[in-house]
Write a protein that binds this DNA or RNA. Structure first.
Length: 433
RNA sequence: GGAGGCGUCGCCUAGUCAGGUCUAUGGCGCCGCACUGCUAAUGCGGUUUGGGGCAAAAACCCCAUCGAGGGUUCAAAUCCCUCCGCCUCCGCCA
């Protein structure tokens, strides 16, 4: 949710943001009108309610006097009671109006996505700006290697079992077996260790959350069709541990001295992939479930940009450890999630596809999520919403793809990145079984 | 799944049976001031959160807020209903 004060005081900033995202610009004036009528409704109710309370204070003692037998006050009491009865109806009506106006304002405010950062490249999905390339894709042809994709490699290693995943759970499901399963634990351990060195508190969060948590993090808006819902229990399966980590401090006021707070969560991620029919159907690139280690930071909004860069650096640190070539992109305005003002993606080179694909992603959500979740900070100057930021440390399936494909050898084996070796019992290579 | 208890402004707590002097009590903690070689102690004042008004800030005023929502009433922390959460016991499962 955006700041209503910004809408009142700098509507042009909001208009520019709407324009950059390709969202409706007229929404700004609609919201301003709704805000004005809400304030009028509030003022009316407040005045009537005040009158009612003043009256109530007179009735109390008067009734006490009458009860004690002072019948001289009876007429005065009756008059007041009559007025109070009238007023009661007006108050009730004013309250209904106020409540309707509150809901209307809330509804219109929720239609706004976060205010796009001025440096974000304007445009659609393809209008991103490449910030940097790291590493160089191998020239497999020069090495005399016919590139195999992660399914071929993973099947030979008996690390990935797609067929049985489909048999048991349907398309876009898989089993990780043997070295595949070990690879997950190795990646998770490497990630958690790195994160702890960088000041993150490890968290195993719940992967099922109540509607308020899902709603508050902004996933029931434009992304709703990709969320699994358990109808019988009114719970949602999270698509990322960003959800339980963002909702962790819901309805809390954090001491400014305790910021920034850095959490790193490990959880399964469930995605319906409703809009992606026919897309990336091969292998484990796009699946309904995978495990992920996710960084989440609460900080003073003043520091948000700096913290964002920091998270990006942590993502790069991990990709460097995996020894895969990648590039960093500044995602274009039209492709930002509704909560983010800016998003950097790290895309790894996928040899079988001969292109860069998203492995990790970090978003600066400023105060957008915290307003909905009522997560605030308190310092000498008072209370105000905190900023929240998130970033992937390792999305298991895609990272396994990148490692298997980029480190494949002519004999069918896969070289293990040095940083991962200690977590794989010292293995330097993975061999077909 | 069954039975019972509980939910008050950071923490603890009074108030709920008998609705109106509740503008929610007191303690702890915290902040400010005073006093004091320093610290401690003491005294005084302040200390939920959100919204609205005053052109802006401060001050001030008003409204809402006693787990959430609804109802009864001129009036609800207090009475009634529903829901949520926590605790205890029983059953079931691990």
């Amino acid at each position: 949710m955006i700041d209503i004060a910004l809408l009142r005081e700098q509507p042009d900033v909001v208009r520019a943001s709407q324009r950059a995202r390709g969202d409706r610009v007229e929404l700004v004036d609609e919201a301003i009108a709704v805000d004005a009528s809400r304030r009028a409704a509030v003022a009316t109710f407040d005045a009537l309610r005040n009158e009612q309370k003043v009256l109530g204070k007179q009735i109390g003692p008067l009734q006490g006097a009458v009860k004690r037998g002072d019948t001289s006050k009876q007429a005065e009491l009756d008059a007041l009671m009559a007025r109070a009865a009238d007023l009661s109806e007006s108050v009730a009506e004013a309250e209904r109006h106020m409540r309707d106006a509150d809901e209307a304002l809330d509804a219109v405010l929720r239609e706004f996505a976060n205010i796009v950062h001025p440096d974000v490249p304007v445009g659609g999905e393809d209008d991103f700006v490449v910030i940097e390339h790291v590493g160089t894709p191998r020239d497999f042809a020069a090495e005399g290697i016919t590139v195999r994709d992660h399914i071929e490699i993973g099947t030979a290693l008996q690390a990935i079992d797609i067929e049985r995943g489909a048999k048991v759970s349907g398309s876009r499901f898989y089993y990780l077996t043997g070295i595949g399963a070990l690879l997950e634990f190795a990646l998770v351990q490497l990630a958690l260790e790195q994160a702890q060195r960088n000041g993150f508190i490890p968290v195993i969060p719940p992967a099922l959350v109540r509607p308020a948590a899902m709603e508050g993090t902004g996933f029931l808006g434009q992304a709703a069709e990709n969320v699994y819902r358990l109808e019988a229990d009114d719970l949602y399966l999270v698509g990322t541990s960003e959800v339980p980590l963002a909702a962790y401090h819901m309805d809390e006021i954090l001491d400014a001295a305790s910021l920034p707070r850095r959490y790193v969560g490990y959880s399964p991620c469930f995605r319906r992939e409703a809009g992606a029919a026919g897309k990336d159907t091969r292998g484990i690139f796009r699946v309904h479930w995978f495990d992920k280690v996710e960084m989440f930071v609460y900080c003073d909004p003043e520091e948000a940009e700096q913290r964002h860069r920091e998270i990006l650096a942590f993502e790069r640190q991990f990709l460097d450890a995996c020894e895969v070539p990648y590039r960093v992109i500044d995602v274009a305005s039209g492709d930002l999630g509704s909560s983010a003002i800016r998003k950097f993606d790290c895309e790894a080179w996928i040899p079988s596809q001969e292109r860069y694909r998203e492995l990790t992603s970090t978003s600066n959500c400023t105060t957008f999520q915290s307003r909905r979740l009522r997560t605030r900070m308190r310092d000498a100057s008072g209370t105000r919403p905190v900023a929240t930021l998130n970033g992937t440390l390792v999305a298991i399936t895609r990272t396994i793809i990148a490692i298997l494909e980029n480190h494949q050898q002519a004999d069918g084996s896969v070289t293990v990145p040095v940083a991962l070796q200690p977590y794989l019992g010292g293995r330097t290579e993975l061999r077909p079984v």
